[in-house]
């Protein structure tokens, strides 16, 4: 049922189709989804706002005369590949969970987590490289933005790894498959979304 239909009801009239709507009365949930999925989607909206604002600030600052772009070390391409790999591994885990092949799900989860740790280590390596080359955060706003966006994205990935760790712990404790499946689905959605955000940020770094 559409939101507009819902909020155009006249609850003070009992013959407005409101009271007689038995399905709605039985299950008034706005979405036929587990609460965890709805919660994650709302959270991703918040994450989107954070990165949108940073992106707007970044684009705004790019127009300033003394903007000197940060070089893109090749390791960033490797890191991007690692994150794509992690996302694919989570997708594999989700598909395996759906099929009930738990061993494959386990493998997918483990590979996804390891690749993500690799991505974060790679990002730290890039930071180290740039610092060695003299691209300090306080030297130019472009440098500062580079460190800011990668740190914010990395912090979100770290948060994801906490959720991943809880999921893996549950798996080791032989939790019910239904619960595990939901956790894997949530992790997968989160990883895909953070990959998308990284691709946008990386693209922004490349064009600037």
């Amino acid at each position: 049922m559409g939101l507009f239909h819902e909020i155009s009801k006249k609850p003070w009239l009992s013959d407005d189709g409101d009271d007689g709507d038995i399905d709605t009365i039985n299950n008034p949930a706005a979405f036929f989804l587990p609460s965890g999925k709805v919660g994650l989607r709302v959270f991703l909206v918040v994450v989107t706002v954070v990165f949108t604002l940073v992106t707007i600030a970044y684009v705004d600052r790019m127009t300033f005369v003394n903007w000197r772009s940060v070089p893109e070390p090749w390791v960033l391409w490797l890191n991007t590949a690692l994150l794509i790999g992690a996302s694919l591994a989570f997708q594999w885990a989700r598909a395996s969970a759906g099929r009930g092949t738990l061993n494959a799900m386990r493998d997918g989860l483990h590979i996804g987590g390891v690749l993500t740790v690799g991505f974060l280590a790679g990002q730290l390596f890039v930071w180290r490289q740039l610092v060695d080359l003299g691209y300090y955060a306080d030297a130019n706003t472009a440098n500062a933005f580079f460190y800011l966006v990668t740190a914010l994205h990395g912090a979100h990935m770290l948060g994801g790894l906490v959720a991943w760790w809880r999921c893996v712990s549950k798996m080791w404790q032989d939790s019910p498959v239904g619960d595990l499946r939901l956790r894997v689905e949530l992790c997968t959605t989160y990883w895909h979304y953070l990959l998308l955000i990284w691709l946008v940020l990386f693209g922004l770094l490349l064009i600037s």
């Binding site: 909020i7 299950n27 008034p28 919660g39 709302v42």
Partner: peptide, 24 residues
């Protein structure tokens, strides 16, 4: 706040009792 806010929004969206439509 974000932790709390997610709770408030999702509880209203998903956890209403039977018959508690949005417009009630």
């Amino acid at each position: 706040f974000t932790m709390g806010g997610l709770n408030y929004v999702v509880t209203v969206l998903q956890s209403r009792s039977r018959g508690m439509t949005l417009m009630r």
